[in-house]
Design a protein around this nucleic acid. Structure first.
Length: 667
DNA sequence: GCGGATCAC
DNA sequence: TATGGTGATCCGC
């Protein structure tokens, strides 16, 4: 394989037919704007698109004339400080994208063979983790706050209405027809829809209603996961089995029951994992459901034409960056696999590969089981300046934070001060007090130096927001003992220290699997392993063939691929011979090279053999009696030195108004 | 570890 | 007149 060949194939692969399907208008083809130069037109277009806000294109806004809406928002915003800041951010992003494009052109002139090989290996590794045995449901209440308000005031059902002052938190579907959406400034929304009725927020009411909904969800999956006040994930695998019902029947029934008992309509997505279920729940919104069948080809077909923006974790910025290099859909990702890691980083690469393959977590668990990592508070106010005024504000914020820390029973070892200047520019400063803090006096005392330092850096500092947050938190639950009589989790071991092998499988905190095969089946298991190895080979071949069919430039890519692709098992054996120290695999008991990455790959491989079997059979096989449930995020660095990836949780008390955020990658 | 940035809701 | 709050994660340095 010569450099030229690799270069030629990659380049050719990048030439794609114009694909404006579902793409944001300005991102696909340049429009005619007579009064402006093309450069200006392009810039304004990206800015206008950005101004449409973050919630666009996630759900359908099809009936709205986005062009017109965009103009109104643009004109309403033009000249404001907010707008100017957005303009700055937009320019910076454009520059960043230009750097990405330059880097891409440079990479295309180099030999990408080994990068392509790495990507291929990773795809195969991921393929091994595919678990199609679970039925995951994502439940999403339709325009939740607005719907709750309509219950109290039915006359609002027929008029455009929004909840939230200053900024809309949500709005009903009448308002959406005018282009109103959550996150939009109130006065902009009024420009779009002068008759819009705005109601103040009433969290107590929403929380009470959310509780009613959750009570019903719990009867379908007692371990369901609240993702936010109005969203939840359920694993209904067991429910389906026990009631001998189809997933779609179950979800129809669930939705009917929720509607009947709470008068709230919900949309639902049904799929093999949380990521797909989430996307699916947007498909037939409002008051609908959509199922993505749990077989590989259906999933690959689904992601092929799926706009990247539909995926949780791809926002306005990442969408633009991906679009710039020619990726509009998850299917497009494959073409660019060789250099994604170098363009966007390793994490983004792994995330994108999972998007392409339609992979996601299958582990659903109560939100309380996720470990909180910080507690903070912030607030916006009319422009403020002056030493005493700012100190007064800081004092107040510190008092607020103390309350939150008391409520959640935490102290923090690190203190983060956040300010937003009157220009909307955001700055943060952090420091580590000599001890963990939670009292407002201490919070204030240790935050003040950061504030005064900022005042020196920025003469005549004018603020519109101030916030305080503690990280590296420690739990101060009474006696340091929690309900299970275990030592407080927040204080338990963390960081990069590798967990000794003997403990790694018994760590209840990580709950990697639910069933462990008994030793007595060893001989039978050994035989099975051989069979499965063969099946794996078959799958590898099938994957290769499918890729070639799915890719437009398949004929050009094929020769390269055939040389590069190979199943991971030989690689592991190669390395096995080179190393002296060996670790025993806890699953197959065979010695493995004492290398974190290789060892992890091997364990992933072992864990997913059952999954592979299911894939290969690809028929609806009954659940095996001894089923291994693979870890949801099977990345190469996950086994011995697993990085803790906590998720936000709801505190026991009145639910967080806007809780539970999703991490950008690896959801 | 720090500060900026992105993302979800 | 005028664009949110809470929490998480990733990247470059």
């Amino acid at each position: 394989m010569s450099t030229d060949e690799a270069h030629g194939q990659i380049s050719n692969a990048l030439v794609e037919p114009p694909d404006s399907l579902n793409a944001p208008p300005h991102l696909s083809a340049p429009r005619e704007l007579p009064a402006e130069t093309p450069a200006e037109a392009g810039e304004h277009d990206t800015l206008k698109y950005h101004l449409l806000g973050p919630s666009l294109t996630k759900a359908g806004q099809d009936a709205v004339d986005q062009q017109k809406v965009s103009e109104i928002i643009y004109n309403a915003s033009k000249g404001s400080k907010f707008f100017n800041n957005e303009e700055v951010k937009d320019r910076n992003l454009t520059e960043k994208i230009n750097r990405i494009l330059a880097l891409k052109r440079q990479l295309e002139r180099t030999d990408l063979t080994s990068d392509l090989r790495r990507a291929e290996d990773y795809i195969l590794e991921l393929e091994l983790t595919r678990d199609l045995t679970q039925t995951i449901v994502h439940i999403d209440c339709d325009a939740f706050y607005a719907a709750v308000e309509e219950l109290d005031r039915p006359e609002l059902r027929d008029v455009p209405m929004a909840v939230g002052k200053g900024v809309l938190t949500t709005c009903n579907y009448h308002a959406r027809k005018f282009g109103c959406r959550s996150g939009m400034a109130g006065f902009v929304a009024m420009k779009l829809c002068p008759q819009l009725i705005c109601l103040p927020l009433n969290f107590d009411k929403y929380n009470a209603k959310a509780k009613e909904v959750r009570t019903i969800l719990a009867t379908y999956d007692p371990r369901f996961e609240s993702a936010s006040i109005d969203e939840a994930y359920l694993n209904i695998t067991e429910y389906c089995n026990e009631h001998h019902m189809d997933p779609e029947e179950v979800v129809s029934q669930l939705r009917a029951e929720v509607h009947e008992k709470t008068k709230i309509t919900v949309s639902a997505g049904i799929a093999a994992n949380a990521k797909l279920a989430k996307i699916a729940s947007n498909r037939n919104k409002p008051n609908g459901q959509y199922r993505i069948a749990s077989d590989r080809s259906t999933i690959m077909e689904f992601t092929r034409n799926l706009p990247t923006r539909k995926v949780n974790g791809v926002g306005r910025v990442f969408e633009r960056e991906l679009d710039a290099i020619g990726i509009k859909t998850c299917g497009n990702i494959y073409t660019h696999r060789a250099y994604l890691s170098k363009l966007f980083g390793e994490k983004a690469f792994q995330f994108l590969m999972q998007c392409y393959l339609g992979l996601g977590r299958t582990k659903i668990q109560p939100a309380e089981e996720y470990e909180r990592k910080s507690v903070g508070t912030e607030s916006t106010f009319p422009e403020l300046s002056g030493k005493t005024e700012l100190r007064e504000k800081l004092r107040h914020i510190a008092e607020e934070l103390e309350k939150d820390l008391e409520r959640t029973q935490h102290k923090g070892r690190t203190l983060v001060l956040k300010v937003k200047l009157h220009t909307f520019e955001v700055l943060t400063r952090q420091s580590s007090p000599p001890k963990a803090v939670h009292l407002s006096e201490d919070l204030y005392r240790y935050a003040l130096p950061m504030l005064t330092k900022l005042e020196k850096e920025i003469p005549n500092m004018k603020l519109r927001l101030m916030g305080l947050r503690v990280t590296h938190i420690v739990s101060i639950k009474k006696g340091g003992i929690d309900f299970f009589g275990l030592k407080s989790r927040a204080a338990s071991s963390r960081g990069g220290t590798p967990v000794p092998k003997s403990e790694s499988g018994a760590n209840a905190d990580d709950g990697e699997w639910e069933v462990w095969p008994e030793a007595e089946f060893e001989e039978a298991a050994r035989q099975e392993r051989e069979d499965e190895m063969n099946e794996l080979e078959a799958l590898s071949q099938e994957h290769q063939q499918l890729q070639e069919q799915e890719e437009n430039g398949a004929s050009l890519e094929a020769p390269l691929d055939r040389q590069v692709r190979k199943p991971p098992s030989p690689k592991i054996e190669e390395n096995l011979n080179e190393k002296e120290e060996l670790w025993d695999c806890p699953i197959c008991s065979l010695p493995q090279p004492a290398d974190n990455k290789i060892f992890n790959s091997h364990i992933d491989f072992c864990l997913s053999r059952q999954t592979i079997k299911d894939v290969v059979k690809s028929t609806s096989s009954p659940t095996p009696t001894m089923r291994l449930i693979p870890r949801p995020q099977s990345s190469s660095n996950s086994m011995p030195a697993k990085r803790k990836r906590g998720r936000p949780r709801n505190d026991g008390v009145a639910l967080e108004p806007q809780a539970a955020k999703r991490k950008p990658f690896f959801s």
